[in-house]
Write a protein that binds this DNA or RNA. Structure first.
Lengths: 235, 235
DNA sequence: CGGTGATGTGTCGCATGCCACTCTCGGAGA
DNA sequence: TCTCCGAGAGTGGCATGCGACACATCACCG
């Protein structure tokens, strides 16, 4: 675990470091860790470490076990299913609403983020690419005007990242991911809300299928995300 | 603030007590409170109080202000809009999925909860009614098989409760609320997934409109929740 | 040899100490 | 009377003290 940078509040730094450690797999899912040891490694006291872990626990990344330690939770197939069901329910409608609400400056910023993502993909810089991927989604969701939605989805991504970061390349190239984002971006810029939402749905669903198939291995895939598709007609 | 019961972990007790205090309005939105004082009132040390407040802060109910105290956040019109947009996006699809997945025993339990809600309404016991209301929604959402969704929506309700608990009666009677739930329950029992989902959407939307109108007072109501309506047809 | 109980180590949960910072309030000076 | 400033009280953030409990180890007994 790397040492902390010098700036900013200790609590925030610790939270960032621990989250990164979990995502990167440095803190192995299923294993128990002691607050004391983590604090020593980070060069701080137990308090901020414990507080950061409480936040991660609320997010579902770890779990405290009394007098035993804190366990990094592993994401089961069912966890993936839950996360992607939520993303499918939230992201497409949010994108639909974001179209037309995006200021020109935001649109430009969005494209800038996309270009950076594209560049990272070309450079085979997986980590940087996922950073921009995240910013892309976040910017789009925030434009929908619902900060809670944006923040929640952003948190959900953490649960998937530690699956995706190390293994996505095996199943699909970074270029494919970029292409899906390009489609979304183009439709957003064209102002076609429904098509953009549909593209987002397909993108998320595609990601879900690949991750779930990979996680399930050769076993039977018992996953149903179809119910997340909007079919209501109230008028 | 009432003294703590004797049982269970201190942290949990404190969390429950603080959440109840915020919802009941005992801790006034907009005001600053000191961890030390809260701890003394609850008869515990600062640590569990601080940890509970951290959880409430993550949920958006309070905010820490360094060297000043912890502020109970007030829910603005926009907050209500955000919360109900999320509920409209999540609850109807979840209900649609819950139908047909509910075991007979769960169905029976759901009806039992409804009957208790009805009884509390008859007795004009507002608080108990909202307790059962919450359990009703929670049971339905959990039946959809997505624990994260259920937990998240449950958390969202806290943001609204401290508006609704004291004021709902001014705008609509408890019986009306019960009637909407009866509609949902009947459709769920009849196995009509789409209709149940539609009923849930209308229930949530109705609640949103009343709370938002009441919050806005006579001022202009600039709220748009229509975008949460599912209109996708991907095939 | 197998089972069992004591003991030691490590852990969290909770209490407390300490520090830098913010805000208040009163008094001195114009 | 008004302004300014400084001392004091109060706060959250972080560090640390302490006790009860979980688990592993190992000696001892059947």
């Amino acid at each position: 675990m790397k040492q902390l940078p010098a700036t900013a509040s200790v609590n925030t730094q610790v939270l960032t470091a621990l989250r990164a450690a979990v995502i990167s797999g440095e803190l192995v899912p299923g294993n128990l860790y002691s607050v004391q040891v983590l604090a020593t490694q980070l060069g701080v006291s137990r308090t901020p470490v414990r507080e950061a872990l409480i936040k991660l626990a609320q997010q579902g990344m770890v779990r405290f076990e009394r007098n035993r330690g804190v366990r990094v939770l592993l994401t089961s197939l069912h966890d993936l299913e839950e996360v992607f069901a939520l993303r499918l329910l939230l992201e497409p409608p949010a994108v639909r609403r974001a179209v037309g609400r995006l200021e020109p400056a935001q649109l430009k910023e969005l494209r800038r983020t996309f270009v950076q993502m594209e560049r990272a993909a070309k450079a085979d810089d997986e980590f940087t690419m996922f950073e921009h991927d995240r910013r892309f989604h976040r910017a789009l969701l925030e434009a929908a005007g619902n900060t809670r939605l944006a923040a929640y989805v952003d948190g959900l991504r953490d649960m998937v990242l530690r699956r995706g970061v190390s293994t996505a390349r095996e199943s699909r190239s970074l270029d494919d991911i970029v292409a899906e984002h390009r489609t979304i971006l183009d439709l957003v810029e064209a102002g076609d809300a429904d098509a953009a939402a549909k593209a987002m749905r397909e993108h998320v669903q595609h990601t879900a299928e690949l991750l779930i198939a990979q996680e399930a291995g050769s076993g039977p895939v018992d996953v149903d995300l179809a119910w997340t598709e909007g079919v209501m007609r109230t008028h």
